[in-house]
């Protein structure tokens, strides 16, 4: 046991996050609305019940979206946490809060350990640069030496099977290639805390098989895993703790089996009520 390195953890107290909504012309809102509409269209199991974030008008007439409300949560080393809930329940916002991208409006969050996040397929890559250049930039971001960057490039190239495409701008990549590159890059170093948004299991079965093998070795070495997905089988397979979010609040938190049962029951009553 290495005593000098304290265990990784994530701790949130009374954490709330609000998104400001500016005038309709503002690009940020257009983007948010668009991506939300797109998500709704793509999700066949859409429920008519309001389950997403709440839109609030504050005292000084600012319109804000309450994405997370008074979250109290501690995740210890060794935990494999799955976040469940409807679209807009605050799962992705919670992941971004853990990385520090979104800072809380009230409450606080503390974490210990190197965090890597797979939040989107392009994972902060520049679409106009080639695969190799993006790998190079990632290496620089991690502060790797020239030699280490070359090793990183070799490893990722082999995993992503890009061949000659590695020299071409990634905007022309197929979604599969992009996913393999993004996934390979984000899993090339073992973080203490690994955060994954649901996109990572969207690839074809061939990719999933490869991804799983690579992920098993990473997850085993990582102290904490937090992932969001709608796939119940993935939750069952990967997680030992589930947190169920609804309208920005935690409504259930516990061992996978118990929460999954509750969740399934709620889903069947939901669809039953609609018929």
């Amino acid at each position: 046991m290495n005593i000098s390195a304290p265990a990784s953890f994530i701790k949130m107290e009374h954490l709330s996050i609000e998104f400001p909504v500016f005038q309709l012309e503002s690009r940020s809102l257009k983007k948010t609305l668009f991506s939300n509409v797109k998500k709704m269209m793509n999700n066949p199991q859409r429920h008519h019940q309001r389950t997403g974030a709440e839109i609030v008008t504050t005292a000084n007439n600012d319109v804000v979206v309450q994405a997370l409300r008074d979250i109290n949560l501690t995740i210890q080393s060794g935990e494999r946490v799955g976040l469940i809930g409807h679209n807009g329940a605050g799962k992705s916002t919670l992941l971004r809060a853990i990385t520090g991208i979104y800072e809380p409006n009230s409450g606080h969050i503390q974490s210990h350990g190197h965090i890597e996040a797979l939040l989107s397929t392009n994972a902060g890559m520049n679409p106009l640069l080639s695969g190799r250049e993006n790998i190079y930039l990632r290496g620089k971001r991690l502060g790797l030496s020239q030699k280490k960057i070359q090793e990183l490039a070799k490893d990722v190239e082999a995993f992503a099977e890009l061949n000659e495409f590695i020299e071409l701008p990634i905007k022309i990549y197929s979604s599969g290639m992009l996913m393999r590159l993004g996934f390979g890059l984000s899993t090339s170093i073992v973080p203490n805390i690994l955060l994954m948004d649901e996109w990572f299991m969207a690839g074809d079965s061939n990719f999933q098989e490869k991804a799983r093998n690579r992920l098993v070795s990473i997850v085993d070495k990582a102290d904490i895993l937090v992932l969001t997905t709608h796939s119940l089988s993935i939750l069952q397979q990967w997680c030992n703790r589930l947190i169920w979010l609804k309208a920005g609040q935690i409504i259930a938190d516990g061992p996978t089996d118990i929460i999954l049962d509750q969740y399934k029951r709620a889903m069947t009553t939901d669809s039953g009520a609609q018929n």
Partner: peptide, 10 residues
């Protein structure tokens, strides 16, 4: 240091 602590508003 890998310890990050983000408080709001203070």
């Amino acid at each position: 240091s890998l310890l990050t602590k983000i408080n709001s508003n203070t």
